[in-house]
């Protein structure tokens, strides 16, 4: 009897078994939901590539559309998107990062800063078509930029600023406060603290956040439609500086929209091929961001 009890010491009871079963089921369900994220991505990419494959080639990327956009490539649209994204990055990144540094490192809790925070949050909620109208009014008409790469990029920049600010603040907040305290206590000013400790330790997060946010604008159509993108333009092939800031440009997102809805008799794979290139551009930019992050992370720190 006694031997029996000792042998059963620490053995599973039915209750434990029941708990384990539940644990297992919960884990399975949550895991499946997480894995489900991969499926849409693979399906989308697979379907697009399958449909668009017949058209995709190097020439497709590097020649202008011809024949009422039914034939030829997408060079002018691809270059347009690169310009729009690039210029809006150059505008939004410094402003957004500096604003975030102010909000995270300097701002005290007073009404002025609360208003700034409120503005940032609300700006993030403004629909892109409203940004488009604002861009049209402010940049195209009022500032007399006309419909141009510059006006469209500014509009995109304003649209991305709130998310850049949010992601930068997150990166800054991940630097432990003890580092800041250590600095203050040897008499470092805020700026010295930021420059010597906070920025070097958050730069990887800041950069990748900024790039990821900006790459998302590559897909925007509404804000550029009124402010700088045109249906069709032929530019010199192979020249990266074929567009000027004051000129109008084509863009992949808009080209895709045009080809699907306005052009009759376009070959069936064409919209898919454009979509593949658009997606490819975004993924390429994201991949760069990730490589950059891994590189910068490998050189740091605590």
């Amino acid at each position: 009897m006694i031997a029996e009890t000792t042998n059963r010491l620490f053995a599973e009871t039915p209750l434990v078994r029941k708990k384990q079963r539940r644990e297992w089921v919960a884990r399975l369900i949550f895991g499946m939901m997480a894995a489900a994220m991969i499926i849409p991505l693979l399906l989308i990419i697979g379907y697009l590539v399958y449909q668009g494959a017949p058209l995709i080639s190097w020439d497709f990327l590097t020649t202008n559309p011809v024949g009422g956009m039914r034939r030829g490539g997408i060079w002018s649209a691809l270059l347009g998107t690169i310009w729009l994204v690039g210029v809006s990055l150059l505008i939004a990144a410094p402003i957004g990062v500096m604003a975030a540094v102010y909000l995270n490192e300097y701002a005290r809790d007073n009404w002025f800063n609360r208003i700034i925070n409120l503005a940032v949050i609300n700006l993030a909620g403004v629909p892109s078509i409203v940004h488009a109208l604002f861009g049209l009014g402010a940049f195209v008409l009022f500032a007399r930029m006309g419909r141009s790469v510059l006006a469209a990029s500014l509009t995109l920049a304003i649209m991305t600023l709130p998310v850049i600010i949010a992601s930068t603040r997150e990166a800054l907040a991940s630097v432990p406060r003890t580092f800041r305290e250590a600095c203050w206590n040897v008499g470092a000013t805020r700026w010295q603290t930021i420059r010597r400790i906070v920025l070097p330790n958050s730069i990887s997060g800041i950069l990748t956040g900024v790039i990821l946010q900006v790459s998302r604008t590559a897909g925007e159509t509404a804000p550029i439609m009124f402010t700088g993108a045109v249906f069709f333009r032929s530019i010199s092939e192979g020249d990266f500086f074929a567009y000027g800031l004051k000129e109008q440009c084509m863009a992949l997102s808009m080209h895709l929209y045009t080809v699907t809805t306005q052009v009759t008799g376009a070959p069936k794979p064409l919209p898919y091929a454009i979509a593949v290139v658009l997606l490819g551009t975004v993924l390429l930019v994201n991949a760069t961001a990730i490589v950059l992050r891994v590189y910068l992370r490998s050189r740091k720190k605590w």
């Binding site: 250590a182 600095c183 206590n185 040897v186 000013t189 010597r196 740091k300």
Partner: peptide
């Protein structure tokens, strides 16, 4: 703050080298 320095509960060296930690104050 230079003349009244503080040492914390959890050691909080800066995430730089030993050398740079010691001269951090001088540098700033």
């Amino acid at each position: 703050r230079k003349s009244a320095g503080m040492v914390f509960q959890r050691p909080n060296p800066l995430p730089i080298s030993v050398y740079e930690n010691v001269v951090f104050g001088l540098r700033i």
